[in-house]
Structures are given as structure tokens and as C-alpha cells.
Nucleic acid binder design. Structure first.
Lengths: 195, 195
DNA sequence: GCCACCATGTAAACAGTTACATGATTAG
DNA sequence: CTAATCATGTAACTGTTTACATGGTGGC
């Protein structure tokens, strides 16, 4: 998907908060933006080299006692300006790829039970994730008054919570539609999204 | 994203219903699976060639009066078997890329108003799409008793409706959090996803 | 005559994943 | 001693988008 390397902006954004190594960036991504924008080492290291060549970040090698090969990257004034400029532009439309829906769309070629099983697995996955997200959301809301810098993190967590909850609600609707026998009277569907 | 060409399975699935040209496939995708699995000509035509080479589909050139260069693709028994085998496998986890959340995550570097504006644009986009989806969903539900083959299409439409509604709800929460002044009392947030 | 739509494709660039390669340190 | 974690990177491959190229048909 050619655009202008959004992942590099993600890295720039993280470095805007504090200087870090590529390894640190990966970890930071993991428990912040990975749910909606993930990146592997195969993207991070080449991006850091590219950003360095462009003068948007600088490197400071070594330093840490006993581990001389650690490279700490810092954002430059130029990099900061570039990031802010990008942040102000309107964002591209969302890109999603739901293999489960693709399979389900052609679900009439396999048995109902197999489709139901797939949906239930999907549901279980996100029930777990929703639990974690809700805990994080509650936590962030509590500390908001003291540290308002967590506001934007909270917003993204809230997004996840809303969407994952929608996943669960849909999964329940779907199973009820496919297996009208188990649990609800035929034709009965609860929830407001259908009315 | 290496996997094993899921888009080819999408094409196979569409051809399983009825023989079509590459051009027809593109249009069919547009108003069926594009919301969760889109594909352009640059993927469709090469995929069709590949599928033909593998013997999963066959081509019938010409035929249509006055337009001799139309190629109609049909799925083979082998293709059908391959599709069904794939449908039965567990699906990979969902792949998403939300540029708006990436920008919002670094929202503290730009003004609150700009973030709010971005969220409102996001909201407007999906409000429109939700309207269309809900209309389609209502329609599909009505014709379900006569034509149960639309069941799986309905399920994917319901998914979209649920998720897009979640987008709208989140957008309202987010704007309220960022601008406590306009419309609601400070600290007040409606909706169940936060409690 | 022009524009929209039908219809097929290719090539280049870009984005992203996976597998590989290397080696130091630390906790059990 | 061995497993996990720290730490950096490359190369090959796959998937996707975009831009380009071509030409016919039908309506205004």
C-alpha cells in the first residue's frame, strides 16, 4: 500500500516522547499502538536508517556499560516538524482485512456447525482482549486527572473497547441466527443493531 | 503479508456461485466483500491467470456478440475442492490499520481542535456508510425466509453495522472527552463501554 | 465528438512478513 | 548450563497499490 511510509511516522512519534533504540521501539509499539498499527524489526530497523539519512533522527552509539552495540535514536527539530505536519493532514481511510468474514461469506459451502465454531473462536479471542483493554481503560481514566498526557492513549484504548465489544455482540447475534435452537426462541434476536 | 493468497480464494468463492469475467469479479467484490476484503484489477487479473495455470478455473474466451475479447472464468471441481478445504481451516487473526488512531495517539503535539475535527470527519464517513449498511441489512432480513442463501451475506452486513455503530459511539465519547464544554456536563460520558 | 463505461492487462514501486544470522548478558 | 531476554540487522518473498497502456461500445 504505497502512501509515504506511515510506519516511519509511528517511529517518529514514539521518539518524540523519548530517545530509544530500535529494540525499545518494538517493545513500546507492542503495548501501545500494536492493536491498530503494528510493525516488526524488518520494518523498524530499515526505517530508522532511512530516517537517519533524511536527518529526521540522530543516532548515539554505545554508551551503556558492557553493551557497546546499542544505538539510541533521538528525533531532530526537522523530524519533529515533519511529524507535526503529518499529524495535521487528514487521515486516509481505514484498511482492514477480516479473513473470518471472507470465509463466512462463502459459508454456505460448508456445514453450519463449522461456521459457528469459527465464530465462537473469534469471540473467545476478543473476549480475552476486551477484558485486558477494559482494565487498561479503567486504569487510564483513574490516573487522567493527575496525568493528562495519557488522554490520547485513553482514546485509542476506548476505541478498542468499543470495537471489541461490537465483535462480541455480533458473534452472539450470528450464532443465534445460525443455530436458532440453542438458547433463544426462533426468530428472536436481541440487541439494537438489527432494528 | 505472505500467507497463501487469500484474495485468490475470494475470487474462487465468487466464481463458485457463477462464472464471470475479471471485470465482473471486480464489480461483484465492490458491493459484497469490499468492506472487509477489497481487491483491484492489479490483483484480480494476475490471480486469474495463476488459478487457470493451476487448473482451479477454466477460461472461455469470446462468445458475447460484438465483444470478442471477453473472458469468462468458471471454477473447476478441483477449484471447488480447494475452496472448501480452505473454508474449513481456522482463520488467521484480523489485520487492521487505523491511521486515524495512529495520529490521535500522538495528538498531544497538535491542538485539540484539530484532533476533534479529525474525529468528526471519521464519524461523518461512517455515519453515511452505516446508513447504507442498515438499509441493506433490513432488506436482507426481509427476504431471508424466501431466499436463505442470503444468510451469510446478511451475517457480514450485520458485522459491519455493529462495528460502524461502535465507531460512531466512540467518536461521540472521544469528542466529549476532548471538549467537555460542548453539549455535555464535565465528566459526563454516556454509553456502557467505559463502566 | 466526447464522455462514461466495458474490458484486459503489465510494470514498477511500495509495504510488510518471515526466516536467517550473530552474539552478549542475566536469571534460574 | 541453559533458557530467556537484550540487541541489531539482512535478504527473500509475498501482497497490494498505482500508473500506465490499449481499444471497443453506447448515449448525448
Amino acid at each position: 500500500m504505497p502512501s509515504e511510509n506511515k510506519t516511519a511516522y509511528a517511529i517518529l512519534g514514539l521518539l518524540c516522547h523519548e530517545p530509544m533504540s530500535g529494540y525499545d521501539i518494538k517493545k513500546r509499539i507492542q503495548h501501545s499502538i500494536a492493536r491498530f498499527w503494528d510493525a516488526g524489526y524488518g520494518q523498524i530497523y530499515p526505517s530508522l536508517r532511512h530516517l537517519t539519512e533524511q536527518g529526521l533522527v540522530t543516532v548515539a552509539t554505545g554508551g551503556g556499560a558492557g553493551r557497546p552495540d546499542k544505538k539510541v535514536y533521538s528525533i531532530t527539530e526537522q523530524g519533529r516538524a515533519q511529524l507535526i505536519s503529518w499529524l495535521s493532514e487528514p487521515s486516509a481511510t481505514e484498511y482492514v482485512r477480516y479473513e473470518i468474514l471472507l470465509k463466512l461469506f462463502f459459508g454456505n459451502w460448508i456445514g453450519v456447525d463449522r461456521n459457528v465454531e469459527m465464530i465462537k473462536q473469534f469471540r473467545a479471542r476478543y473476549q480475552r482482549e476486551l477484558g485486558e483493554l477494559q482494565a487498561a481503560t479503567r486504569n487510564l481514566r483513574q490516573v487522567l486527572p493527575e496525568s493528562p498526557d495519557h488522554l490520547y492513549f485513553l482514546l485509542t484504548a476506548m476505541f478498542g473497547a468499543r470495537v471489541y465489544q461490537a465483535y462480541l455482540d455480533w458473534a452472539d447475534d450470528a450464532v443465534n441466527l445460525l443455530q436458532p435452537s440453542s438458547g433463544s426462541r426462533p426468530g428472536e434476536i436481541k440487541g439494537g443493531a438489527l432494528s
